[in-house]
Structures are given as C-alpha cells and as structure tokens.
Design a protein around this nucleic acid. Sequence first.
DNA 1: ACGACGGTTTTACGAACGTCCAACCATTGA
DNA 2: TCAATGGTTGGACGTTCGTAAAACCGTCGT
Lengths: 109, 109
Amino acid sequence: MREPFHPPTESISLASVMHAMSDPVRLEIVARLAGSDGENCGGIGDGIDVHKSTMSHHYRVLREAGVTRTTLEGRSRVVRLRHDDLEARFPGLLTSVLAALRRTGPTGG
Amino acid sequence: MREPFHPPTESISLASVMHAMSDPVRLEIVARLAGSDGENCGGIGDGIDVHKSTMSHHYRVLREAGVTRTTLEGRSRVVRLRHDDLEARFPGLLTSVLAALRRTGPTGG
DNA sequence: ACGACGGTTTTACGAACGTCCAACCATTGA
DNA sequence: TCAATGGTTGGACGTTCGTAAAACCGTCGT
C-alpha cells in the first residue's frame, strides 16, 4: 500500500482546482469532508449513489488537483481537505466554496 | 440581433460556475474582464490565440453559467462580469478567484 | 490457508468538451 | 449596392470526462 501522489502546494493550479470542484459528486464529497472535520467519509462513498470505482476515481481527481490529501493511517485511508495549503495558495477560495455549498448545495437550488 | 439568455441570479449553480471557470482560456477572459473594469475584450478574443468561433463558444459558456452578462449597447456587444450577482449568490467566490488569477494566472505557475 | 473487506486499476463506452472551418447574419461604410 | 467588419451557428473531429464492470491487491479474522 503506497502513499499516493500529491502536488506540492506551490504547484497547485487554479484551473485544476476549479475543475476538481465542478462536478456535483465531488462537490458533495468536499461538503462532507468539510462537515466531518476533514475525516474520511466512513467507507468510500457512504450514501453517495455511485459505484465504488467511480468514487475512487473522484477521490483521485480531488487529490491530484491538490484539494484533498489521502493518508494511510493504520489500516485505512483518511481523506482530508488541504485547507491550509489551499488557503495559502488561493486565499479565500475554499472558504467561499464551502460557504456556497452550505447555502445552495452542489447544484444550487 | 437578440438579447441572449442569462440565468437569473437565484438559479446560478455552483457546479456550473466552477465549470465555467475551470478552463484556462475562460479564466484568461475573466481575468481580462476584471482588469478592464468589466468592459468587453475590445473585439472578440483580442490577443487570445483561438479561433473567433471558439471565443464565441467560451463567451457563451460563461454567460450561461451566470458569470458574465452580454449586453447590446449601441452597435457592439459588451461583456461584463456579473460581480454583484455572484457576490449575492456566492459571497467571496469571484473575489477569491480574481485574487488567485492575479497571483498565479490561470494555469498557476 | 482462506475468505471477507475496502479500495485501486484496467478496460470499455457514451456523453460532453474544446477546437476549427465554413457558412451565415447583421451592421457599417464606401 | 457591395464589400468589410464582428460575431453567431452548425458540423466535424479528436480528446477528456463520468460511469460501471471485472479483475486485482493488501490487510484482517478465523
């Protein structure tokens, strides 16, 4: 079980972050990560109705964009928002996205 | 020459806005609109090296997502950021994106 | 040793995307 | 009236995306 790749903070690109957070499923993941104090989702895709391989794919997109960090703590993966890194790179961006999610949800309505 | 469609502020979706601002060309457009006090780009795609029909496409994506407003003033189109509408709908979002663009540019480097 | 569990990888496929070209439309100016 | 200008529309083409199925991998429990 190897540690997956994460982009260093300085090379996180705005376009990638925006793209990562442009899919409803991934926005839902982000919302839950924010809600659960940055823990994982308690088993991949708990309550999100997509195949586990699809969830794995979405987690990878978020991770490779620099939005989340996946660590291997003990025997299970833990996914967290890279809150501080994103704040350092793009101040206010994640915060406003989270606020928007709280307001309207991913699809906004 | 008919006025094109714009979504009302209340029905602007987060996912659509994020998607609209996830493409380097469109981020460049947004950056220029912000820099030029919300005027148009002085002729479509001035200095952005894509075909004019491609620019037209990108302008449409931004407009239909609710990021920009295209008006027909006199004889020419004028494109503006929907700054106030976006601020009302998703407070801080556009502001932080513009700040990010100033910092790192669309592709972030 | 073996199966169950949790997750990744590979592959496949339809849909959506970004791009260009060509044709078109509306307005301006000669 | 005709050409030029500025922009949109409709294909077309190759790429990327989101999704699921199937196979695989590492760890745990028994």
